[in-house]
Structures are given as structure tokens and as C-alpha cells.
Design a protein around this nucleic acid. Structure first.
Lengths: 121, 121
DNA sequence: CTCATACTCAACCTTTCGGTTGAAGAGGAC
DNA sequence: GTCCTCTTCAACCGAAAGGTTGAGTATGAG
């Protein structure tokens, strides 16, 4: 487990069961047994899933008698959101620029750009 | 490769090299060779990464002589953004509710809620 | 103390992942 | 045609993922 934080978050959410667990935790905290109930895998498997979510910082676990209530840490979503938004905006910006270029081009100019069309220094 | 779309997107982005490729593609389209240059892995490995990104719908490839320009499909980000935002908002909503409950509680009331504290019908 | 409950650890198995090398396909260049 | 370039396909390899069973730990209930 030496991956960077962003990789951990993304790969934690790459599993449908784990995403479902996250979804259910937005409603309320829950114990491992409660979380495991709906799935047809063993409790141990779910316990492993929770460890993955915990290592990614998406979830925290406290102690309460024998139970280990699992709690969603929604703030980690920010990391992803920031990453996604950054590139989405850049991509949109790029389309806008490309659009301008195309618009300001004489109709017969060869439209064969594939490399770099950024502001040329 | 039978995973659902969301899983494919998340696991495609769970790899740092692939995220870097996506980042570079926001600047401009690029060929496989160009994309492979900065990394110290073989071109074949990068070709595989591109296949993963393509299967996730994050990238498309056209044909242009022997070259296969790779193009970022930014709209797929929306799928993720929607998923994340949904749960983040629900989570925040939940904290707000919990806050209200705590605030409206007499100081000596036992603060031991772990299960369900939603509006009781 | 004994027993039951909630959970985790350890060992194992099978499949997937990320990488390699080597060969093959697809198109210009000559 | 022959060659050279860009890219993918195929077979293989080691490591990690996701699952299992079985034993061990922690805590409350009797």
C-alpha cells in the first residue's frame, strides 16, 4: 500500500460494492455487520473493503463495545473534485481556444492540427 | 472487461501514469509515441494504458496515416462529478441535520447515537 | 468463569493488472 | 516492390485484488 492519496481514493471507489457502502454511509453510520448484510459475500470480505476505504481516508472507524461503527469522511471527496475540475476546465478552455482558431481561419485553410496549438510564447 | 461504466472510469484514473496522460491531453491531442516519451516504460505499456482510458470513455483515437492521435473526451468527467456531488451533498445534509439535533438537545442528554437519526416519519 | 457476539488476522486461491519481449499489421517514403 | 515508422497483438511474468475458510481478539451477557 504505497500508492499516492489520489490513486488510493480512485481505486477505492472503482469497486461497486465499496461505492454502495459509501452511498449507504451518507444516510447514517453503520457497523460492519450491518453493512455486510445486503451483500452475498462474507463479513470478512466487507471488512477488507472497509479497510480499503479507510486507507483511502474515505471512512473512519471508532470503537463502541464490540462494535466498530463506520463513519463517512466526506471531505476526502474534495481531493477528487479538485482534480477533476482542474482538468475539465482546462479541457473546456482548450476547446474554446480551438474554436476561436477555427472561427478566425479562412475557409480553405487546411484543418489538420493535431499537435500543440497553444499561445506560441 | 464487464465492469460498469463508473467502475471503469474510476479504475482508469486510479493509475498515476494514466492520470498524467489525461493531464497532458488537456493541452493538446498527441500520438502514442509522444505520450510514451516521458515515461520509462515501453510504448506497448502506454498503448495498453490508452486502451484502458479508451474503454472508460475518457479518450478517443482517430487515424491519420500510421499515427493514432489520442483525444481527451472531457464529458465523461461529468459521470464522476455527478456521482461525487450527489454523495457529498447528502453527507453534508446529514451533518447539518445531526448538528440541529445536537443543538436542540438538553446538555445532559446521552450523546450516544450511532444508528439512524433521520426524521422519524 | 463461560459463552456469545462483533470483528480482524492469516493463509490460501484465482483473476486481474502493469509490465516485459517478440512478432505482426498498416501506411508513407524511396 | 523494399524499407522504415507507428502502433497493436500475443504470450508470458510477478505482484496485487477480491474472494474464501479457519483461527484469534475484544467485549458484553449469564
Amino acid at each position: 500500500m504505497a500508492a499516492d492519496p489520489l490513486s488510493r481514493v480512485f481505486s477505492a471507489l472503482a469497486d461497486p460494492t465499496r461505492r454502495d457502502i459509501v452511498a449507504r454511509l451518507t444516510v447514517a453510520d453503520a457497523t460492519v455487520n450491518e453493512l455486510a448484510a445486503p451483500y452475498d459475500v462474507t463479513v470478512q470480505a466487507v471488512s477488507k473493503h472497509l479497510k480499503v476505504l479507510e486507507d483511502a481516508g474515505l471512512v473512519s472507524r471508532s470503537r463502541e463495545a464490540q462494535r466498530r461503527p463506520v463513519h463517512l469522511e466526506a471531505n476526502v471527496f474534495d481531493l477528487m473534485t479538485r482534480w477533476i475540475e482542474r482538468y475539465r476546465q482546462q479541457a473546456e478552455e482548450r476547446y474554446r481556444r480551438l474554436d476561436d482558431v477555427l472561427r478566425s481561419m479562412p475557409d480553405d485553410a487546411a484543418p489538420r492540427p493535431t499537435r500543440q496549438e497553444g499561445t506560441p510564447s
